[in-house]
Design a protein around this nucleic acid. Structure first.
Length: 511
RNA sequence: GCCGCGUUGGUCAAUCGGCUAAGACGCCUCUCUUUCACGGAGGAAUGACGGGUUCGAUUCCCGUACGCGGUACCA
């Protein structure tokens, strides 16, 4: 194994890129980068009926957002192209024909209707999942059961057909999985998979093997759902005489639903109220919408960090990793075997941590974008950064910056007076009216000045400061939250503070 | 049904035969803060079951149970 590490990420453009897909991409990327290898993008678009326009660009955008851009692939170039399976159609046919010539595969002329009928018959006899295998391939219409002349005639007439692999009878197959160790299979138990479809497109099975060989892929990291078809792939490498070039395999654990144990699906997000895709995605065909982490206010650093910890850990107590740190630390032997349930609370925690460790300057473009979407205009970047510094501790997702930061720039329209109404009285009203007057007479304006003035007046009126602090906060903020009141007062300025007091007073008194 | 993979707190998880079983999320209590958070201190909560192997099993082996995946001319 002296050749270069090359891994591939091969999404099918049939929909959005959800958690499982991004994590597969991420692990491939980390594995390659850790050893200075290449990360290849290949598109699996062999199922023309399910091809979704725009999905390819979307996938690339998602990867880019995560910071894990491939080294080669569609639109990126590279010496092993083309990278779309639909553009490599003729290639697969050659390999399939070679297999037929060598007796490892055969032409099958059965129509879908005939297959359906056979399956029905077998089911009636008790088979739960009827297979096209050595058990019955003699009964079907294929180059196995038919005389050579007839096969040739059918072929010459252009009869629709597929090419199927001929699974062997008495053979033990084993795979050394990088994560799971030795796995044994009995090939006679798996059916004669279609390799080349009627339309000339390869199935996944043929395509991966051919592509991985031609693209010199050295390691295959894919989801656990592929484990059952591994024997087909191993056999193909063997039958094609390419066994020496067979990549190493690692089957990644699944990401499970938070409720129950099933594999996480796109629908779970909408149902349970969290995003499942990296970015927003609307299927152009079905119009089905899937929420994205990016639009939900996640930082890519947090998203990637959270994803990496789903199925991998460093073995230390460290949980927060930058992409670079992950690249430095990632080894396949620390990948888990068991599936992990996705936990949205933990995901938000990661985001919170990343927001906290981000500088206000780095955060400001993102926050101002959030503000912009809500029509909150911030003229001064410096002031925005000051606000971010004041509130980022209390923001889990970027949208929280709006709720937490809005009042710095806009006077509240509504006041959460619930808790203070019962204790409100004329003395307090007087206090705030006088406070406004005193504030207006102040020569300088800062948090300390404001607080001293406030406290002096409270003492003079013989009202406990504690009883006045909360009302003041609600006048300025609208609710019971936010940084220290006088810091807020200092920020919004003297006249704005007075305005807000005067504006709120009627609502308080009207109680 | 058959085949494959898995199984440590509610969740993510450490442990490569010595365990009084880390840590994190979430939850609860206290503290800090005249708000909400952040921070700090603490708490409840775990090895699916049954056999072996061993001086000693969470760790190794075998069964069972359970869960998941696959069983398509989808990937």
């Amino acid at each position: 194994m002296t050749h270069r590490i090359r891994v591939r990420f091969a999404p099918s453009p049939t929909g959005g890129l959800h958690l499982g897909g991004v994590r597969t991409a991420l692990f491939n990327y980390l594995f390659a980068r850790h050893q200075g290898g290449d990360f290849v993008l290949r598109i699996e678009d062999t199922d023309a009926s399910r091809y979704v326009p725009g999905a390819e660009e979307y996938i690339l955008d998602c990867l880019k957002w995560c910071g894990i851009s491939p080294d080669e692939g569609p639109g990126l170039g590279g010496e092993y192209g083309p990278y779309r399976q639909s553009e490599r159609k003729s290639l697969y046919r050659e390999y399939a024909r070679q297999l037929v010539r060598d007796g490892h595969a055969y032409y099958a002329f059965d129509t879908p209707q005939e297959l359906e009928k056979i399956r029905e018959d077998l089911k009636r006899k008790g088979a739960v999942s009827p297979q096209y295998s050595m058990e019955n391939r003699e009964l079907m219409r294929n180059s196995f059961s038919l005389p050579a002349a007839e096969v040739q005639e059918l072929l010459d007439k252009g009869t629709p057909h597929v090419i199927r692999i001929r699974m062997p009878q008495n053979e033990e197959l084993s795979l050394k999985d990088l994560i799971r160790g030795e796995i044994h299979f009995d090939p006679s138990l798996v059916d004669d998979k279609v390799l080349l479809k009627t339309d000339g497109m390869p199935t996944y099975h043929l395509a991966v093997v051919v592509d991985d060989y031609l693209m010199k892929i050295s390691h295959v990291l894919r989801g656990e759902e592929w484990l059952p078809s591994a024997p087909v792939h191993i056999l193909l490498w063997k039958y094609l005489g390419l066994e020496k070039h067979m990549p190493e395999f690692a089957h990644l654990p699944l990401i499970l639903r938070p409720d129950g144990n099933g594999k996480l699906s796109k629908r779970d997000g909408g149902r349970l109220g969290f995003p499942v895709n990296a970015m927003n995605w609307t299927d152009p065909v079905t119009q089905e919408f899937t929420q994205g982490f990016r639009e939900t206010g996640f930082l890519p650093e947090a998203f990637v960090n959270m994803l990496a910890m789903l199925g991998w850990n460093s073995g230390t107590e460290q949980e927060l990793f930058s992409l670079q740190e992950l690249e430095d630390r990632f080894t396949i032997d620390r990948v888990h075997k068991g599936g992990a349930k996705f936990d949205y609370d933990k995901a938000k925690w990661f985001n919170h941590e990343w927001i906290k460790r981000q500088s206000p300057i780095a955060l400001s473009p993102l926050v101002s974008q959030v503000f912009g979407q809500k029509n909150l205009h911030v003229p001064d970047l410096r002031r925005l950064e000051q606000v971010i510094a004041l509130i980022s501790d209390r923001c889990q997702v970027l949208d929280d910056f709006y709720d937490q930061g809005r009042f710095f720039f806009e006077a509240p329209e509504h006041w959460d007076t619930e808790g203070i109404k019962p204790k409100w009285n004329a003395e307090k009203k007087d206090f705030f009216e006088s406070l406004a007057v005193q504030f207006s007479g102040l020569a300088s304006w800062n948090a300390i000045q404001a607080e001293e003035t406030f406290k002096a007046l409270a003492t003079q009126r013989q009202i406990k400061a504690g009883e006045l602090l909360l009302p003041l906060r609600i006048m300025l903020v609208g609710g019971k939250f936010g940084p220290p009141v006088f810091v807020i007062a200092a920020f919004i300025g003297c006249s704005q503070t007075i305005d807000r007091i005067n504006k709120a007073l009627p609502a308080f008194s009207g109680a």
